[in-house]
């Protein structure tokens, strides 16, 4: 029996270790090796040192991609986190009827994913026939029903942020609602006894109670935001007005798969790793600090 329990964990981990090693760690190392080589095809390459990284540093298009991606990630967080928290607070109110039903409705969009959301918003925002433009045409006849959300840089940005918010707000709300429901109710009673105002209760009881979950949502939102690709790719059908569709991953795809420049694509991947690590460190520190 003792030898059995000695061997068992390795057998249970074997499938994970084999696939994780062969299809995660190996390609990861391989990507690093590819980032210092120039490719003329998948099998024809020569070493070029750090040339790809140096090229990225001075390529204005890459900088546009980095700034676009960072600004989208910041906008998503500014929109998603407050909305998720607001909805969770509403749903957490005492004696809300139909809480499960509201939660279900708000959670449904997450099933769609980035590609379907891109298609859905393409149709929803279509000039003339789309629901949004019809509503705008009716409410604001001066503006009319022919706003083109794909060719105006500001409208395109609004559309992409709105689509991501539609996908993710309900998701964040479910996490926050669970955290709100686990806040010790005696703390609220104590605050009430002390004569705390609703704002003081929110600031000193509710907010500390949900802070770890808020930090987690900011972390996941930052990481996800920096990997933005499918939604603008489908919605804008190209780089979009003033290159608003050019994200870091879009840049990687164009380099690697449209032009076969796998070396530069691999270098972009590693720059993305650095960007995400830099953005994640303060969040991870905050999460650890609040535990």
């Amino acid at each position: 029996m003792r030898s059995r329990t000695r061997l068992a964990p390795y057998l249970f981990l074997l499938p994970f270790l084999v696939v994780f090693g062969g299809f995660f760690l190996l390609p990861l190392v391989q990507s690093l090796g590819m980032s210092v080589r120039a490719y003329a095809g998948p099998r024809a390459s020569r070493p070029v040192g750090l040339a790809h990284y140096r090229f990225l540093l001075v390529d204005p298009l890459f900088w546009v991609a980095v700034l676009n991606t960072a600004s989208y990630a910041a906008l998503f967080l500014l929109v998603q986190v407050p909305l998720s928290l607001g909805l969770a607070l509403l749903l957490n109110a005492r004696r809300v009827r139909g809480r499960a039903l509201f939660r279900l409705a708000m959670l449904l969009p997450f099933l769609a994913g980035n590609v379907l959301a891109g298609v859905l918003f393409t149709v929803l925002l279509a000039p003339g026939s789309g629901l949004v433009n019809r509503a705008v045409g009716m409410l604001l006849p001066a503006v009319g029903a022919n706003l083109n959300w794909r060719t105006d840089p500001v409208l395109a940005t609004v559309a992409i942020v709105a689509a991501v918010a539609w996908l993710t707000v309900g998701w964040g709300m479910v996490y926050l609602l669970a955290a709100l429901q686990s806040v010790d109710r005696q703390l609220y009673e104590a605050a009430a006894v002390d004569g705390a105002t609703p704002w003081q209760r929110f600031r000193h009881v509710t907010l500390p109670g949900v802070r770890p979950v808020l930090a987690y949502l900011v972390l996941v939102g930052t990481i996800g935001g920096l990997q933005l690709f499918e939604l603008p790719y489908v919605f804008l059908q190209g780089l979009g007005p003033r290159l608003r569709g050019l994200t870091v991953v879009q840049y990687l795809v164009i380099r690697g798969f449209d032009r076969g420049d796998l070396g530069t694509a691999a270098a972009v991947g590693w720059v993305l790793v650095v960007l995400i690590t830099l953005a994640a460190i303060p969040q991870l520190r905050r999460m650890r600090g609040s535990q």
Binding site: L28, Q30, S31, M34
Partner: peptide, 9 residues
């Protein structure tokens, strides 16, 4: 780690 870094490898 972003999965996209794996793509070329």
């Amino acid at each position: 780690l972003p999965s996209q870094v794996l793509l070329p490898g």
